[in-house]
């Protein structure tokens, strides 16, 4: 479980997140949805500490991760690092190490933090790559992969350490509908199988309906709506409806 309380963040006086409080539940795929530019990525980065929040607190289970009053102390840094070992994150742009092959990318965290033998590491990497349906790409470099393949490698790398908390920033944007669903289901499966707290940024309605155990709608940096994918279609929130039923024919359908 990850608990975010009263987070605010602004860039140069321009508020991007306003007083957001959400509880992300364990063993569930928690989706954050919202228009492009609504602050989803910023929220995610605040939660993992790549951006410092202006106000508010982030708790990982009962471990304090980010609290404005403690960032000045170095003890907080130690706690952060230990929490981060439990985090897997897939970035919007992939963020693969481009000097390393696919295999080395997935092995990297294992080499850094475990004492596995070369063979065990390779097995683990192959297992993760299999799960994202990338079997014959081990020796390729990120620059030699398609955008969708890069995303899948990024997911494989994010899950290689068996994280307790998994963050995925738009895991299926730029993928064809079929692969997108495969990826969605994969993340959903892993979440349930290993009882992970998973947080997914998305603006894809298919994902929402398919795997949204819990859905949070962010609008203009504020939490606008929260519920399950079953509740979302019947929600009578104007902005949310605008977002979901963006296409004219869907709007007509809703009426």
């Amino acid at each position: 479980m990850i608990q975010v309380s009263n987070i605010s963040k602004s860039f140069g006086g321009k508020p991007v997140l306003r007083d957001i409080s959400i509880t992300f539940e364990k063993g569930k795929a928690n989706l954050i949805i919202g228009q492009s530019g609504s602050g989803k990525t910023v929220l995610m980065k605040c939660m993992v500490g790549l951006l410092e929040v202006d106000e508010g607190v982030v708790m990982y289970d009962d471990r304090l991760f980010s609290d404005k009053s403690t960032t000045a102390h170095s003890s907080n840094g130690v706690n952060r690092q230990s929490i981060r070992r439990d985090i897997g994150m897939m970035f919007q742009g992939g963020a693969l190490f481009d000097s390393q092959t696919v295999e080395e990318n997935v092995i990297f965290p294992l080499s850094m933090f475990t004492n596995m033998s070369e063979e065990e590491k390779l097995d683990r990497a192959n297992f993760c790559l299999d799960r994202v349906h990338l079997e014959n790409a081990n020796k390729l470099f990120p620059a030699e992969l398609s955008g969708g393949m890069q995303k899948r490698v990024a997911i494989a790398r994010a899950i290689s350490m068996n994280p307790k908390y998994l963050f995925c920033d738009e895991p299926n944007s730029g993928l064809d509908p079929k692969t997108a669903i495969v990826i969605d289901n994969l993340i959903h499966e892993i979440t349930h199988e290993f009882d992970i707290t998973t947080i997914i940024n998305s603006h894809d309605m298919n994902s929402v309906m398919e795997i949204g155990d819990k859905v949070v709608f962010i609008h203009n940096g504020e939490k606008w709506w929260e519920g399950t994918n079953e509740e979302i279609l019947s929600a009578d929130n104007e902005e949310l409806n605008d977002f979901i039923f963006a296409a004219k024919y869907l709007k007509a359908l809703k009426k």
Partner: peptide, 12 residues
Amino acid sequence: TEQIDALEIMGV
């Protein structure tokens, strides 16, 4: 390209 961020997230 956020590779440095990716390292930080791993706890490196």
